[in-house]
């Protein structure tokens, strides 16, 4: 009986870590691509109109932060899986 509980605990633990890894890994794809795209477009904009640099940088940062939300959600899910479940 004790061995079975131990096995179940071990499987749960392994599933937690695998789930956290998958959540973080796949969740990081979207924000990575999206933020890189935003930064590239901002570079293009700055090269076209260097005098608007501060406004473009500000807008880029806010947009990147918003598109980062999904990555942050997956980070929270991963943290919950590892430390709380």
């Amino acid at each position: 009986m004790a061995a079975e509980t131990e096995l179940a605990d071990a499987i749960t633990k392994a599933a937690q870590f695998i789930g956290a890894g998958i959540a973080m890994g796949f969740g990081a794809i979207g924000p990575g691509v999206g933020e890189g795209f935003a930064a590239g477009k901002a570079c293009e904009g700055i090269s076209r109109r260097p005098e608007e640099q501060s406004l473009i940088t500000r807008t880029m940062l806010v947009g990147q932060a918003v598109s980062e939300s999904t990555g942050i959600y997956s980070l929270v899910v991963a943290i919950l899986l590892i430390f709380v479940v």
Partner: peptide
Amino acid sequence: ISLPFRLFGNIFG
């Protein structure tokens, strides 16, 4: 929801 979790996630991460 996303406003506090963004800050917390970045600093805690």
